[in-house]
């Protein structure tokens, strides 16, 4: 049988504590501003946020909540997705938008694949993926004239 402690919103309290730290950091940062126009708003907002967080923690201590159901989900795939997206962003200046986009698309497609890689899929998916990336690249770079990074490595 779950106890009150197990049912308390511990996660919410931890997040509130992090927000208190964030608010304190913001308040500390406002001490350096020269003009009152610059500090009056962030100082008020940070103060309000800290107060709301303290009330939330106090409220969570006295009021238990229903425990969240456990779910079976793949954390490595989640980390992989974020890493692939961040990697593409950080690679952009070096390999250019097109190559980093193709690499990210391929990596994320591999991560999101739960069905077996049949021969047909191995041929069709890369072709469709490349067409999507090239299509969007053409739309943004050639039609909308967005200066997408060309890549230092390729321009040498």
């Amino acid at each position: 049988m779950p106890t009150d402690r197990q049912n308390r919103d511990v996660g919410g309290m931890v997040i509130a504590a992090i927000f208190i730290l964030t608010g304190a950091l913001a308040l500390w940062d406002t001490l350096e501003y020269v003009d009152a126009d610059s500090y009056v708003f962030p100082r008020t907002v940070a103060g309000a946020m800290v107060v709301f967080c303290i009330v939330l923690i106090a409220w969570s201590l006295v009021r238990p909540v229903a425990a969240a159901p456990r779910r079976s989900e793949s954390t490595p795939r989640r980390v992989g997705l974020v890493s692939a997206m961040l990697g593409a962003a950080l690679l952009m200046p070096y390999t250019g938008f097109l190559i980093s986009g193709l690499l990210a698309f391929g990596a994320i497609a591999w991560l999101a694949m739960y069905d077996p890689w049949t021969r047909g899929r191995l041929i069709i998916y890369p072709l469709v993926g490349s067409a999507i990336v090239l299509g969007f690249y053409f739309l943004f770079h050639k039609v909308l004239l967005v200066p997408l990074p060309a890549g230092k490595l390729l321009s040498v």
Partner: peptide, 30 residues
């Protein structure tokens, strides 16, 4: 799903970059 997820992810990357032509915006978005 193996086509939907990377397509949407790629759209978020290119869409975010195009707003201010900024890689910083892409990193902040992620």
């Amino acid at each position: 799903k193996a086509m939907l997820v990377p397509t949407v992810a790629f759209m978020t990357l290119i869409g975010t970059y195009a707003i201010r032509n900024s890689i910083s915006d892409v990193v902040i978005m992620i």
